[in-house]
């Protein structure tokens, strides 16, 4: 009882200071976000500011709502019939849940990489070219070739696939497929890239490559990554947000979170005491 009150006090403290710090330079800002799956209250009053050109990691025990909150940012939850979102999520100050916003346009700006690599069952070239094509980003074949090449380069895949662009994307190894998916997301020139446990299906070497890639992408993109691996969060992110039972427990610089968290629950989680 006592503990809880103390935690709450600490939490509100954290929130206010964080907000004050980054108000001016936040890329994504969520206010009073609530998410319901039918009756189930999956996200409870989450407020968070995400900084541009940095990596923010979402951690927390399984089922705490990390994916749910991530999918709110590019409105992927719209595809789930029973899902209802309340509150505001603004990107560069524009509320993505404004009725005037078309989620299709939003998703070109906020790309997504999924847990399981999911390349289209088409050629490597087609996988990358699909996004630019439907958004009309290239007028000529040569322009498209250029986009495909730079996207694959940015995803660190170019050298491995440049000789077989017309081979099926599904024929690549798991790690290569995931980097192909990152290239596909990058190809439409997004500003934000959301990654939902992008390495959970990969072996350690492929994971290291993707982490390295995230490190490079940070210079140009705002990246939000969900991870169940504390080490990964520590390695790739500058900021970390801890979720628990649909609440945002705390959000802070990654260094501080892992050395000196404010909240007992964060400490427990990091120490491996639950989740």
């Amino acid at each position: 009882m006592n503990d809880a009150t103390m935690n709450n006090a600490l939490m509100s403290n954290v929130k206010t200071t964080t907000k004050a710090d980054v108000m001016t330079e936040s890329k994504i800002s969520a206010k009073n976000v609530q998410v319901f799956y039918g009756e189930k209250h999956a996200i409870k009053d989450v407020n968070i500011e995400i900084r541009p050109r940095s990596v923010t990691a979402f951690i927390g025990p399984s089922g705490c709502g990390k994916s749910t909150f991530l999918r709110c940012i590019n409105r992927m939850n719209d595809t789930i019939d029973i899902c209802r979102v309340e509150g505001d999520i603004a990107i560069d100050g524009e509320n993505v849940y404004d009725p005037k916003v078309d989620p299709v346009q939003l998703r070109a700006k906020v790309g997504m990489v999924f847990q399981k690599p999911n390349p289209f069952p088409k050629t490597i070239y087609e996988n990358v070219a699909y996004g630019p094509r439907i958004h009309g980003l290239a007028r000529k074949k040569s322009e498209m070739d250029e986009i495909v090449a730079t996207s694959l380069q940015k995803a660190g895949l170019w050298n491995e696939v440049k000789d077989r662009l017309d081979a099926p994307g599904t024929g690549l190894s798991g790690g290569q497929q995931q980097r192909l998916c990152i290239a596909r997301a990058v190809a439409v020139s997004p500003e934000v890239i959301l990654m939902d446990e992008p390495c959970s299906a990969l072996d350690p070497i492929a994971t290291a490559k993707v982490e390295e890639l995230i490190h490079e992408l940070r210079e140009n993109y705002t990246i939000v990554i969900v991870t169940h691996s504390m080490q990964q969060a520590a390695r790739v992110s500058q900021r970390t947000a801890m979720f628990h039972l649909g609440e945002l427990v705390e959000e802070d610089d990654t260094d501080k979170m892992f050395t000196n968290p404010n909240d007992q629950r964060t400490q427990d989680y990091i120490m491996g005491r639950f989740g």
């Binding site: 997504m112 999911n118 390349p119 069952p121 190809a187």
Partner: peptide
Amino acid sequence: PPSIRDAALGVGAS
């Protein structure tokens, strides 16, 4: 697989 739909929606396909 739903992942294919997600993939397409994720790059901004309608």
